[in-house]
Computed example of a mutant assay.
Amino acid sequence: METINLGEAEGLPPVDWAAVVEKLDAGSAPRPEAHNSRTTWLCTLNEDGSPHVTAVGALWVDGAFWFQTGADTRKGRNVARDPRCSVAVSISDADVVIEGDAARVTEPGAVARLAKAWADQGWPAEPDETGSGITAPFNAPALGPPPWNVYRIEPRSATVAWAAEPGGLTRFRF
């Protein structure tokens, strides 16, 4: 892993990636009243190269972000054509942007594990009858009817703005 201290000119130390992963693994979120209260944002690339940014119910599991969407949604079409994307999320004491490639996951064991992770957080997802997608009694209306595809974003790089003392701004390349 390459670490680039973007805050060095301001005398800031590099951010500790292990501390970021610990907070992501724990599902750390800012206080509800904090300026950076939790919303996870996914950015994909439209056909003309412009960004498409949308809020998603992404999860951090096993060192990667996971999201779900319908095949005919804009983000579904975008990642099918060009898998490059980024996820931005606020955690306690930091804002994190992960860049990587979205890969559709159809392996039934992985899909079931992620459906359970969503269900454990209050969204009653479960694998569909094929085991390669998920279903639930409700979802965002724009996603269309179930089943929905599951995607994994393996981090290629990350940028972290650490707000806790002493602060820091660091880019990581994996």
Rank of each mutant, 00 (worst) to 15 (best):
G49N: 06
R113S: 06
L12V: 05
A140N: 14
W41F: 14
D16R: 14
L24Q: 08
M1P: 04
N78P: 11
I4S: 06
E2C: 03
L169V: 14
I4C: 00
A142W: 14
C43Q: 07
P166E: 13
T106E: 15
N5L: 08
E154L: 05
K116W: 02
P124W: 04
W123M: 05
G131A: 08
A34L: 09
E99G: 06
R31I: 02
L24V: 08
A55C: 12
A102Q: 03
G70S: 13
K116L: 11
S86D: 12
T44Q: 04
V105F: 01
V97F: 00
P51H: 12
L59A: 04
N5A: 11
G167F: 10
A64D: 10
L169A: 12
P108D: 10
V111S: 04
S92A: 15
H52F: 08
A158W: 02
P145H: 05
V15M: 10
N139C: 07
D25Q: 09
P155K: 07
W17A: 12
A161C: 09
L42D: 01
R152K: 15
A117V: 02
V89A: 13
G109L: 07
S86Y: 10
W118Y: 15
P145A: 15
A158S: 10
V53L: 13
R173P: 00
G7P: 01
E2W: 09
V56Y: 01
T106C: 01
G131W: 09
N46H: 10
K116R: 15
N5E: 10
P127W: 01
G7K: 06
T69A: 12
V150L: 14
I153L: 11
G144H: 01
H52W: 08
P127H: 07
V150F: 04
L169P: 02
W60N: 02
S37P: 00
L143A: 07
R74M: 11
N46Q: 15
Q68A: 10
V111A: 10
G76P: 06
T39K: 03
R156K: 12
S132D: 10
T135W: 00
D93T: 08
A80D: 11
V15N: 07
R173N: 11
H35W: 12
S132T: 15
M1Q: 07
G167R: 11
V150G: 00
A18T: 13
S28H: 12
P108I: 06
T3H: 09
D120W: 02
P141S: 09
L45W: 02
V105H: 04
E8H: 10
P137H: 07
P137W: 07
N36M: 09
A102S: 07
P145K: 09
W66T: 07
T44C: 08
N5F: 03
W162M: 05
W123G: 00
E8N: 07
D48R: 03
A117F: 03
C43V: 15
N139I: 02
R38N: 03
D48E: 06
V160E: 06
G49Y: 07
G122H: 03
R156N: 06
A18P: 03
T39M: 08
P83I: 05
